[in-house]
């Protein structure tokens, strides 16, 4: 039975992390997560099987049980994983430049001698959480481009090369265009009917 993730393209913080985790799950086992899109400011950023709570952890769990075992942090790093996932959802999404700069500097320090957020040879859920938060934060584009935190810029650029990360925005944009088209087609029909 497949799970359903609904992403709200009009949310103040678009749930890129959830979307990417679902893309990873589906790349390992197609059909693991049915990803749907809505564009309604009033709805939550994401719901997973109808719930808006703990969506990222739930998608990651679905991905891990589908076989994306590298997303799960090794036991020794589970506290660090939780820490960075928490930082991502609370601190990397904010738009206050000064506060955001401080958080990015901490991520930069973590990446001084690590290729990925938790170290190791592959990205984990912590990378997806942080990358997704930065992707969703309009403040970050120029900060990353200008190499203010050069390790963050290098890490971000690497993951963007991965189609599962880099292609998430295109998937979202295309889905939102389709929604718009469907909506305007619906409206025309109504007008036509009347």
């Amino acid at each position: 039975m497949s799970a359903t993730l609904v992403i709200n393209g009009k949310a103040p913080v678009v749930a890129y992390a959830e979307l990417i985790a679902a893309r990873v799950a589906n790349s390992v086992a197609p059909g693991t997560v049915d990803v749907q899109f809505v564009d309604d400011k009033k709805l939550p950023a994401a719901t997973f099987n109808g719930s808006a709570e703990g969506t990222f952890a739930a998608v990651v769990a679905a991905a891990v049980s589908a076989g994306a075992s590298s997303l799960a942090a090794p036991a020794a790093l589970s506290a660090a994983s939780e820490h960075w996932t928490q930082v991502a959802s609370s601190e990397l999404v904010i738009k206050n430049f000064q506060k955001l700069s401080q958080s990015l500097e901490l991520l930069d320090a973590q990446l001084n001698l690590r290729t990925f957020v938790l170290g190791g040879l592959q990205y984990s859920a912590a990378d997806i959480a942080c990358w997704g938060a930065l992707r969703a934060n309009g403040m970050c584009g120029s900060i990353i481009k200008n190499k203010v935190d050069v390790n963050v810029s290098r890490w971000y650029t690497l993951l963007e090369l991965d189609p599962l990360f880099g292609g998430a925005h295109e998937q979202l944009t295309k889905a939102l265009q389709d929604l718009k088209k469907a909506a305007s087609a619906g409206k025309k029909k109504e007008v036509h009917k009347a």
């Binding site: 930069d108 320090a109 001084n112 001698l113 690590r114 040879l121 203010v148 050069v150 390790n151």
Partner: peptide
């Protein structure tokens, strides 16, 4: 790590050593 270089031959690295923020 990738090439599984034996521990004794590795560069021993302290990943948490605090380094100054690099300014580009």
């Amino acid at each position: 790590q990738l090439l599984q270089v034996p521990g004794a031959d590795q560069l021993a690295l302290n990943h948490d050593l605090e380094l100054p923020h690099e300014v580009v």
